[in-house]
Structure formats: C-alpha cells, structure tokens
Design a protein around this nucleic acid. Structure first.
Lengths: 192, 192
DNA sequence: TCTACAATTGACTGATTAGTCAGTTACACT
DNA sequence: AGTGTAACTGACTAATCAGTCAATTGTAGA
C-alpha cells in the first residue's frame, strides 16, 4: 500500500520533470502529466492540490538532490582548493548525469511559479557553501570579494561548463573540460 | 501611415516582452498581449502569423540589441585587456539597464519555442567575440583553453554579476561589483 | 465473507486558449 | 466627392485548460 502510494507520486513527479523541461509550465497540461505518469488526472490532484504545488515540490526535490550531490565526498581535513575542486566537479557531473534536472533548474530558478517560501527553503541547504567561502576568505586562501559575488561567479561558471559539455559531441574529453574550467575559476578566485 | 504601422508593431513587441518575462510564453495569452499593446487581437496576427513567430521576432530583436551594446566603444588600438573589460562592463550595464530584456533572454535562450533558425541567425552576430578571443589566445594574452569554454565562462559570469546587482539593494556600489567581477574573470583567463 | 475506508478513476464543468474572418475605418490618389 | 486598398477590429469557434466529484477498486482487519 505505502509502496503503491510512493510509486504513483514518484511517477507523477518524474513525468512532470520530463514534460516541464520539454514544454514549460503552462505548455504542459495536467492531463499530459497524468497520462505520461500512467495515472488518472484525479490522482495527480490527490497528491498535489494544484499544479503550482506540483512544480514547487518538484523544484524543492531537484534542488535538494543538487545540494546533496554538491557536498559529496568532501573531506574535512583536505586543503581548501581540493574541497572547491571537488564541489566543482560534483556540480558539473550532477548536471551532465542529470540533464533533465539541470535544464529544469535553469528554466525555473527565476520563474514566477516558484513561491518565495520554496525559494527560502531551498536556500537553507546551501549554507555550507556560503560558510566554506567565508572561511576561505578569512584564512586568506581566496581573495576578499563579497561572498555572494564569489559564489555567484562560481556557480554560474559551473552551469556554463555543463551547457558546454552537453552541447559538445561526446567524443570530447569531459574531464579535460572540467579541469580546464576549474583552472580558470580557481585562478580567478585564489589569492596567489 | 508608415509611422502608425511601426508604432503598433513596436507596441505589440514591447507588450509581449513585458508579459512573457512576467508570466512565460504559454502563461501569456495573445489577448493579454493585444490588450497591453492597445490593439485588437487581429492586429497581432496581422504582424505575427503565430504566437511562435512573435516570440522568435522578439528574441531576435533583443539578442541583436545585446550584441550591439556589447561591442560599443571598443577601440581597435587599445590593449586586449581594456577591450575585454569594456565588453564586460557593456554586457553588465546592458543587463542592468534593460532588466526585462535581460530576464527574457535568460528565460528563453534554451526554450523550445525559439526555433533553430532564429538561434543560428542570432549566433552570426556574436562572431566578433569569438574572433577577439581567438586573437587573444594566438597573441598569448589569455590562456590557451578552448575558445568556446573561454566565451561561455565569460558570458555566464557576466550574467551572474547582473543577477547579483539586480538582487542587491541599490545602495551598493554597482561599479565596484563590475570591476571586482572583472578582476575575477580576467585573472582566471589571463596568461600571467 | 463482510465491513470500512483510503486510493484511484475519468467523465465532466466553466473558463480560457490561439487563431479566423467578415466587416469597418482611414487615407492616398484621381 | 468617389474609389481602391491596406490596416485594423473584435465577436466568434473549436480545442484545450485546471480542477471536481460521484462512483469504483483494492485491501486490511474482524
């Protein structure tokens, strides 16, 4: 019973992710989502009271997965540069391996359908990056610019790199791109 | 007569820009656009055969304005770094001064409603940035990474900065942000 | 087997959509 | 003034929309 519930809810979320990414929010009808998920329209509205609730749940879930992946395998005692490099490659590998989710976040991060509440809840999961950067500034490893500026440049640069990898043919060396990209952003941020 | 024509077409384009940015493509009806523009629905379809034609025209126009602004006041004989700094500040000032257009481009650059044809036409106007970067690599002023990587990092970083300026309260010093941002990206790209 | 109840269904509704088109207006040229 | 024509209008249509709800299903516990 519980398994069934989770299954249908997951199926709806996955169908919505696929279709929202392909056709946008208003471009995708609840009927299409239900059909893709293999459930009745009524079932969708049983789990998500409105279409907006659905996209907010989806956004929250995907952003959570991203922040989870970002922080993976960071060793507390390793040098600052290695931590940042690991975050960098985590971000990029997440985007490349979860193309739909990556495009979804890009399309909806500044969309009016995502409520302020959802946005704020999501933000809470990114505190650790903020802390890390502030620590890097305080210990003099990276240059003393505003932490917001540093983080924004870092994160957007990682998105640029994912787009590049997704656009380029697969024969190109992904890891070369990732390391080259890190060389650019690290040299830009590092103190010496 | 000719003036009237241009006026109505412009009014439609401007209304569409505002509403598409606020509510998205499918979230904005042609009736809403017509009303905002102060024309009848029929008039809209007189100038743009379909809603998709409208958004493609709009995208082409806005991207054209961006590429125009980007290349402004670049002096041929000035050092490479100054050229790049000027492009950087041009990009950011365009985004800050043309907020609606900036958000529109961000929202629709990877949207399915923009046709491949429009995308390719737009690309043609960005050749000069590609040429400049290649020249910078050849003369050894910037590091020898793929030109696509360099341009992608540069352009996305500029978008990150505009977002930051738009989000921050207006009391903060805009020019400080712009110069700090350039310091990061320039140090990242430059050879020494 | 029977009961109770949550999960699920899909036909349905009133509202809204992109796009049409027959008719009106405004103006240039004679 | 009269004529031709391009711009413009907005009521209209068939299709589609988000969301509802009475009816059905599946199943856990008695």
């Amino acid at each position: 019973m519980k398994e069934q519930v989770i299954d249908k809810k997951t199926a709806i979320i996955e169908a919505a992710l696929k279709l929202f990414t392909e056709r946008g929010f208003h471009g995708t009808s609840t009927a299409q989502i239900s059909k893709e998920a293999g459930v009745a329209t009524g079932t969708l509205f049983n789990y998500f009271p409105t279409k907006e609730d659905l996209i907010n749940s989806l956004y929250f879930k995907v952003k959570g997965q991203l922040s989870q992946s970002m922080g993976k395998e960071i060793e507390a005692q390793s040098p600052f540069q290695d931590k940042l490099r690991k975050i960098w490659s985590n971000l990029i590998k997440w985007g490349v391996d979860n193309q739909e989710e990556f495009l979804f976040v890009g399309q909806f991060c500044s969309s009016p359908y995502i409520t302020k509440f959802t946005r704020e809840e999501v933000m809470k999961e990114y505190v650790f990056l903020h802390d890390l950067v502030n620590q890097g500034i305080k210990t003099g490893v990276i240059r003393d610019f505003s932490a917001e500026l540093t983080i924004a440049m870092f994160c957007q640069a990682s998105r640029a790199l994912v787009n590049l990898i997704l656009d380029s043919d697969s024969s190109q060396d992904k890891n070369k791109f990732i390391e080259d990209g890190f060389q650019i952003i690290w040299k830009g941020l590092a103190k010496n």
